[in-house]
């Protein structure tokens, strides 16, 4: 087995006095797809935001692609180039067109010639099925379309890892499917994915492993089948009964 792509050991984080992540140990292998769930405030978003250093951890180690995340700004830059992220609120740049959103980072970070960057962007926009919207502004698109642009924008940096922070939570029910479809297709490309979501259908279909977090700790992790039909801890059982009851 090759070296894990993400290795987290004994990681702790505090927001002021609040101990948000407690002794997190997590190893992610190449091409592994992990779904993280748990009640709100359990630290799941904070956990994945630590992986690309949008949040700073105070104790323990995080190693991504062989690069340890410390205060070193160069290391942080190198990690962020390899890690894409999709946000709950899309966070597209409203003053740029869809195409410019996708080409900004390749041009300014990877120093790609514009024509090449645009070609790449069109390729990914085609993959998320909205090449015809390339010249529109984010404000002209529906929520589902915006989230698909956000996915394409991240992919244009050709990341090795994709982080999804509740990508469907801000969407209307009909738009959830179009975004999940794109994510399922992405899963088929052997991308390493960490997805914070409550879409249990997606978890069953795509995930290799499901992680349940509560109060800043990883309570339980298992393969989807085992996790859903044979949960070990009472806390997991309670959580599952609540989200699967209707």
């Amino acid at each position: 087995m090759s070296e894990p792509i993400i290795r987290i050991e004994g990681m702790n984080k505090w927001f002021g006095q609040f101990h948000v992540l407690r002794d997190i140990d997590l190893t992610v292998n190449r091409a592994e797809r992990i779904v993280i769930c748990g009640p709100s405030g359990s630290g799941k978003s904070t956990l994945i935001r630590c992986i690309n250093r949008l949040e700073e951890h105070q104790k323990g180690t995080i190693v991504v692609e062989g690069i340890e995340l410390t205060g070193d700004l160069k290391q942080i830059d190198n990690v962020r180039r390899e890690v894409g992220m999709v946000f709950q609120q899309f966070n597209l740049f409203p003053h740029l067109t869809v195409l410019e959103n996708c080409t900004l980072a390749p041009i300014w970070v990877r120093r790609t010639p514009r024509a090449e960057a645009e070609e790449l962007a069109m390729e990914y926009l085609t993959r998320v099925k909205i090449p015809e919207q390339a010249l529109k502004y984010p404000g002209q698109l529906s929520g589902g379309q915006q989230q698909r642009v956000a996915i394409a924008r991240s992919l244009c940096m050709r990341p090795k890892i994709m982080l999804f922070d509740e990508p469907t939570s801000a969407l209307d029910p009909e738009m959830i499917k179009e975004v999940l479809d794109v994510m399922v297709e992405l899963a088929e490309t052997e991308m390493t994915m960490l997805v914070v979501t409550h879409e249990m259908g997606f978890a069953r279909q795509v995930a290799h492993r499901v992680i349940f977090m509560d109060e800043g700790q990883i309570v339980e992790q298992n393969e989807p089948e085992e996790f859903f039909y044979n949960p070990k801890s009472d806390r997991t059982k309670l959580f599952l009964s609540q989200i699967l009851s209707h």
């Binding site: 992220m85 609120q89 597209l92 740049f93 940096m157």
Partner: peptide, 25 residues
């Protein structure tokens, strides 16, 4: 804040983030 985070997560450094994303808005 999400604009800055999105830009950082794409690997864009703080100075160009300010110039290309934050200041125009």
């Amino acid at each position: 804040k999400g604009q800055q985070e999105a830009s950082y997560s794409l690997g864009v450094r703080p100075a160009p983030t300010l110039r290309l994303v934050i200041i125009p808005q």
